Simulated scan of single mutants.
Amino acid sequence: MISRDQMLAAPKVLLHDHLDGGLRPGTIAELAADIGHTLPRTDPDELGAWFVESADSGSLERYLETFDHTVAVMQNSAAITRVASECVQDLAADGVVYAEIRYAPEQHLNGGLSLDQVVEAVREGFEQGEVLAKAAGHQIVVRQLLTAMRHQARSMEIAELAIAYRDAGVAGFDIAGAEAGFPPTRHLDAFEYLQRENAHFTIHAGEAFGLPSIWQAIQWCGADRLGHGVRIVDDIAAADSALLDLASVDLAKVELGRLAAYVRDRRIPLEMCPSSNLQTGAADSIAHHPIGLLTALKFRVTVNTDNRLMSGTTLSREFSLLAEAFGYDLADIRWFTINAMKSAFLPFEQRLALINTIIKPWYADALA
C-alpha cells in the first residue's frame, strides 16, 4: 500500500494537462467578477462542485459549457498570467517535478490580445510559478504545448508560433477538438512543417473516435505521442477472457493487431487520463480502464490528469485510483514516471538530469 504522504511526495511527471481545465474555482469567481461574466455558481466550493457534476453528467453540451466559463475569464494578460502561475504552484505542491501544459492560444483573443501576447502571458505565469514553488520548497520545470483546434483553420499559424517560441518555453505542438469529422489529416501542412523544423508534436487521438484516428495521427501525420490513445485496445484480442477484466486475462494468449504492435514496438507514448476517460465514456470504470492491460503488455503508458478542475483530480489522485484498482506499488509509479520523463519534449540531457538527480534517487530511497 502506498500512503497518502508517499504518493504526494513522490516525484511525478505530467504530459497531458489543459491550462483552461485546471483553474482554481476561487480564481474563476474573482476573475469573472472583475469582467462581469455570469457564472452558474458564485461560491468557490459550489462552483468547483458544479464543474465536476457537469463533467460527470454524460451530456457533451454541459461538459463543453464548463470550458466556456474558464476560457471567458482568460482573455487578458493579467488573468492568463495568474492562471498559469497558480497552475505551476498547484502541480508543484502535488509533487510534479516536470509538466507540459497545453492550451489553444486562438481561444484567448477576445479581449484584444495577439497570439504572441497570449504565449508571453503564459510564459510569464509559468516563470512566476516556478519561482514561487521553489520558495515553497518544491522544484518544478514547466513547458508549454501550443494547441490548434481541429475544427478551425489556424493550425499552420499555431505551428509557426510554436517554432517561434521553442527556445522560449514552448516544448511542442498539439491538436485537439472533436475527432469525428475532423481528422488530423486536415492539418497535414502544419505537421509537415513541424517535421521539417525538427519539432515535437502530440495529437489527441483514439479517445472518442477509435483506431482510424490513431492510425492517421501516427502514419499520416507523424505524431511523437498520442493524446489519450485509449482506443488502441480495440486492436488487441485476448483468447478465452474478458479483455479488460485484467485478473482473468492470460497475457500469453493476448494477440496484438498490426497497429497495436507498431505502437508498442515503436514505444509511442500514450498520454492516458483515467478519470477524464470515464467522464467522456472512453472507459466505464477505473478497474476496467484499458490502462491496466496496456501496462501489463508494456506499452509506453503515461498517467495524466487532462482537466484537473472538471475531473476534480490531481496526478497523485490518479495514481492512487490506479493503485487501488490494479494493486500498483511505488515501483510501478516509478515506472510510469520514468516513462513520462523519457517521453517529454525536453532535450535529452535535461530529461536525463531529472531522471538521475530527482526521480531515481527519491524512489531508490523510498523502496529501500
Rank of each mutant, 00 (worst) to 15 (best):
D116S: 05
K342F: 06
R41G: 01
R266I: 01
Y63I: 03
M1V: 09
G312I: 09
R334I: 08
T147L: 07
A353N: 12
A199I: 10
E207Y: 13
L47A: 02
I214K: 02
L256A: 08
L15R: 07
D245L: 04
I268G: 01
R4W: 11
I333Y: 13
V233T: 11
Y165Q: 04
L346M: 13
I158T: 08
E160K: 15
D90P: 00
A33L: 06
Q152K: 14
N307V: 10
T314W: 06
A368I: 07
L47S: 07
G21F: 06
R351W: 06
D332I: 04
A296Q: 14
G181C: 03
E65W: 13
P290F: 12
G95N: 04
Q350A: 06
A79Y: 09
M310D: 08
Q89R: 15
P290R: 11
D284F: 13
P274E: 03
G95P: 00
L194W: 13
L113N: 06
L243W: 11
V13Q: 09
A121V: 02
E30G: 02
R267W: 09
F126L: 14
D235A: 06
Y363R: 07
T70S: 05
P183V: 08
I232C: 01
L64H: 05
G111I: 09
H108A: 03
A168G: 02
G169C: 03
K253I: 01
S77V: 04
T147S: 14
L211P: 00
E255M: 08
E100G: 01
G125I: 07
R62Q: 14
G292H: 11
R351C: 03
S77Q: 10
A261I: 02
A168Y: 08
A247D: 15
L293T: 14
A49D: 15
F182A: 05
F201Q: 04
L47T: 10
E318N: 04
N339I: 08
C221I: 02
